[in-house]
């Protein structure tokens, strides 16, 4: 049974695209058939993070409007053959998305894939609402910071009222993914603690992704962090999160990059 998963947050820059690519990569590496879709029409980025920007011919808008077939627009990943990308259009805007078109594309994808991971744009407007519209599962990406938490809360409210499931009286399964977490800074009170965020948002925790330079490094080489360096701290955290998405019980911990004593001392000082 295919699952439509939306990665959303309300606020921009918290790691939706990174998380979409990383979770997509992790799920695919576990043998599932995965497609990641970029809903950020006009500001597409997922193609870059997936390293497929030079292979885009047709995009989501072409398929939604019937100008191209789905099979023409899907880009198969070079590293994993069961991972595909449906890119957004960079030259159009979100008004080009229609509700019926999106529903049709998702229905077609449901027949071909196990997981359909939708990368939502920031905001609460058309792009974001259409990305979450048909979702079965939502991953709410949140930074340990007050504005991100409040925006996530707003998004959770929309997931409970504006999605197809909500309108049918069912519930979209919601998970919190806490990204850019720095244990040391949280303990020193410089960022919100995991417990504070969970208390405010009151949805189950999917994973905690530690702040790490590995994430930016992976983005810049166009590879999901779970494929670029699966043993890095964020890589392991995303793999754990993906296993929890599949329903496995995995002990919750915050992986860290191993550092020598000197590294720890200097890491602290620099932070």
């Amino acid at each position: 049974m295919a699952k439509v998963l939306v990665v959303t947050s309300g606020k921009g820059g918290v790691g939706k695209t990174t998380s979409t690519a990383a979770l997509g990569g992790a799920l695919a590496q576990g043998g599932e058939k995965v497609v990641v879709i970029d809903f950020d029409v006009g500001l597409r980025n997922l193609d870059l993070v997936m390293g497929a920007e030079r292979r885009v011919v047709f995009d989501l808008i072409n398929v939604v409007q019937g100008d191209a077939k789905l099979s023409q627009a899907l880009i198969r990943d070079k590293r994993l053959e069961n991972l595909s990308l449906l890119p957004a259009s960079q030259t159009r805007d979100k008004d080009a998305l229609t509700e019926e078109g999106v529903a049709r594309v998702l229905a077609e994808l449901r027949e071909k894939f196990d997981w359909i991971v939708c990368d939502s744009p920031a905001g609460i407007e058309r792009g974001a609402t259409l990305a979450m519209r048909h979702a079965d599962v939502a991953v709410v990406v949140t930074n340990p910071e007050v504005s991100s938490v409040r925006d996530s809360d707003r998004i959770i409210g929309l997931l409970d009222s504006k999605t197809e499931k909500a309108e049918k009286g069912e519930r979209v399964e919601k998970h919190l993914l806490l990204t850019r977490y720095d244990q040391g800074r949280a303990e020193r009170g410089e960022m919100l603690k995991k417990e504070d965020v969970l208390e405010i948002l009151s949805i189950p925790l999917l994973g905690i992704i530690p702040e790490s330079e590995e994430v930016l490094r992976a983005s810049n080489v166009g590879t999901p962090v779970t494929l670029n360096n699966p043993n890095s701290a964020p890589g392991r955290a995303y793999f754990d999160a993906a296993r929890r998405l599949k329903g496995e019980t995995v002990e919750m911990m915050i992986p860290s990059d191993r550092k020598g004593l000197l590294g720890k001392l200097f890491g602290r000082r620099a932070a």
Partner: peptide, 27 residues
């Protein structure tokens, strides 16, 4: 029964309102 999320507005002029969950910042 649940929480009132940021951006939501509950208007009930006819009587009391009871919320079992939280009322978020911005609600």
């Amino acid at each position: 029964e649940g929480s009132v999320r940021s951006g939501q507005s509950i208007i009930h002029t006819e009587g009391d309102v009871t919320v079992l969950g939280h009322v978020a910042s911005g609600a």
